[in-house]
Simulated scan of single mutants.
Amino acid sequence: MRILIALAAALTVAGAAPAQAAAPSALAAPDISVTNVKAHLTQFQSIANANGGNRAHGRPGYLASVNWVKSKLDAAGFTTRVHSFTYGGATGYNLIADYPGGDANNVVMLGGHLDSVPAGPGINDNGTGSASILEVALQMKATGFRPAKHVRFGWWGAEERGLIGSAAYVNSLSSAEKSKIKTYLNFDMTGSPNPGYFVYDAVKGEFPAGSLALQQRLEADFKARNIPTELIDVGNRSDHRAFMAAGIPVGGTFTGAEKIKTAAQAAKWGGTAGQAFDRCYHRSCDTTSNINDTALDRNADVIASTLWAVAA
């Protein structure tokens, strides 16, 4: 993530059941293995280690990350394509992966940025979101999930340079193609070492119509796991921005970055008050040691249960 400056029965998510109508267990969403997610993070760390210590836009570690994620999805039967763009004199890449089947006129999309800053490997920011949606995608195939809606994933390039890749992708779509995307869910930093459990605030964020139902769906899935949440106004801070600007309903989760955890938040969530949610934010120490396994696991499970509900 780069630095920039209650449930209602009538609400539905692009035709999905009301948020309060189904707990995750009733939706048969899989329990996402945090071991598998961490294995993906280890791969991202290895790629960074072999490529100058980072996975940044325009650097070899980023393209190696794209190629590795693509190989996993290709093997699982996804239809993948690499969408390229140019920024800062370098070619950047988005990876787009479509799950077979579902209503092509009713698309649910999940995404997160795959690049790091040049200073480090970017394992929490944003290996965690990238690895989590990868494992959720792989579990779609493993469990034989056949959603009524079409499901698409995006791994974005050059987020750390100004949300460039996601904007390039959305701007490349025709008006007709944009109108088919009914939901976009963004996952950027889901395993912060001193974590909070934040859900994007659809009201303060002034998100498009339909976003409130996504907020409530995510809140409900955390509540079903007895995890208290707080709403956060993420503003234009991550890759949901381009979808939001296109009028597409958006939502997402976040475990915190450079801001300081308060005493009240530590009492609610554990961890250390007076310390940043992620002390290694945008630093070389954002490695596989800079992860809270519990937060990573909980967020991956919420991603899966939300997808199973929204895309059903």
Rank of each mutant, 00 (worst) to 15 (best):
R152Q: 15
R241V: 12
I3K: 06
M189I: 14
A48K: 11
L41M: 14
D188Y: 04
H40E: 07
V234Y: 06
K38C: 01
L7A: 03
D286C: 03
D233S: 14
K141I: 02
G92F: 13
H150I: 13
G89H: 05
H150A: 15
L11M: 09
H83P: 04
N67K: 15
I3A: 10
G15V: 00
A29H: 00
Q139I: 05
K178V: 11
A10S: 10
N36D: 09
E160D: 10
N186H: 04
G111P: 06
S175W: 01
I164S: 03
D103G: 02
A148D: 06
S132V: 06
G235Q: 10
P30Q: 01
K268H: 05
T287S: 14
V203Y: 08
K259R: 11
F222Y: 15
K149P: 08
L231I: 00
A19H: 09
S84E: 14
E206P: 00
A8P: 01
R152H: 10
E160Q: 10
A29K: 00
G52E: 07
A300M: 05
L4C: 05
A264E: 14
Y197M: 13
Q215T: 12
P208E: 09
S130L: 14
G205R: 03
A295D: 14
S284N: 11
D125H: 08
N299A: 09
A209F: 05
K38V: 01
P100R: 05
S238K: 07
A304T: 06
E219Q: 11
D98A: 02
G61H: 07
N106T: 10
A167L: 02
K261D: 04
G196D: 10
T294W: 13
L231E: 06
G251A: 12
S174T: 15
E177N: 13
S132P: 06
I232Y: 07
L4D: 11
S305P: 03
A17P: 03
I227F: 03
G196H: 12
W156S: 12
I133F: 07
A213Q: 13
W68G: 14
N194L: 15
G274A: 09
M1W: 08
D278G: 05
L63F: 15
S166Q: 01
Q20L: 13
D233F: 15
V117P: 00
L173W: 02
A39M: 12
H57L: 11
G129A: 06
Y62T: 08
S289M: 00
G120A: 09
S179T: 11
N67A: 08
A312V: 12
A246Y: 03
G191S: 08
D278C: 14
Q265A: 14
R298N: 13
T262V: 02
L95K: 00
T255P: 01
G205T: 03
A267S: 11
G252Y: 01
V170Y: 03
F145Q: 09
G144C: 06
T229P: 07
S116I: 03
